[in-house]
């Protein structure tokens, strides 16, 4: 990442020290990625137990807004992160895909919990054995359910991924 942006991201103190004539040299790609990873807007899309922990993550104690991801959007058209929080049933799977398709690019998916990652303890007729059969998943968070810290760690991992990621911003991925 460009040197300038590190200072940009660090604190206001840096820019004050540099004075009014300071300027950064960076690439547009780096700049865009910096903006993207610090304003991940999740879709309000709770499925099961994990959704309760996702709500707790938005609560005061864990405060997801420290990572710029507190803006839960009720409409997938305004969101760029889908947190699949819970088990996906066979009946729900097309809906999950539909919500994903409605989200504008660039978009990311976190599979929160064992059920969303692999079906969890529900290895039966009703549950899709991992949401990656329906949508592409960027980060898997283990746990049943994962703690809010776990989800936050997943979001940080996703931020790392966006920072380092290949240029796939407008790229459609096949499942």
């Amino acid at each position: 990442m460009a040197e300038g942006l590190e200072a940009f991201e660090g604190a206001g103190g840096a820019s004050a020290a540099l004075g009014g004539d300071a300027f950064f040299l960076t690439t547009l790609k780096t700049m865009v990625r910096w903006a993207e990873r610090n304003s991940l807007w999740p879709a309000t899309f709770g499925l099961a137990c994990c959704a309760i922990e996702m709500m707790a993550t938005a609560g005061l104690r864990f405060d997801i807004s420290r990572f710029g991801a507190e803006v839960f959007r009720a409409s997938p058209r305004q969101a760029d992160l889908m947190i699949v929080s819970g088990r996906v049933s066979q009946k729900m799977a097309p809906v999950v895909r539909n919500v994903y398709d409605q989200m504008p690019h660039p978009k990311w998916v976190i599979a929160m919990g064992a059920c969303a990652s692999c079906g969890g303890i529900f290895d039966n007729y009703a549950i899709v054995q991992g949401v990656d059969r329906v949508v592409p998943v960027d980060v898997y968070v283990p746990g049943c359910p994962p703690t809010p810290d776990g989800l936050l760690y997943g979001i940080m991992k996703l931020q790392d991924k966006i920072r380092a990621g290949a240029d796939r911003v407008f790229e459609e991925r096949a499942v």
Partner: peptide, 14 residues
């Protein structure tokens, strides 16, 4: 309803 049908009853038997 049924969007979260998990098959608890069947799983319980196994």
């Amino acid at each position: 309803i049924g969007y979260l049908h998990t098959g608890f009853e069947k799983s319980g038997e196994s």
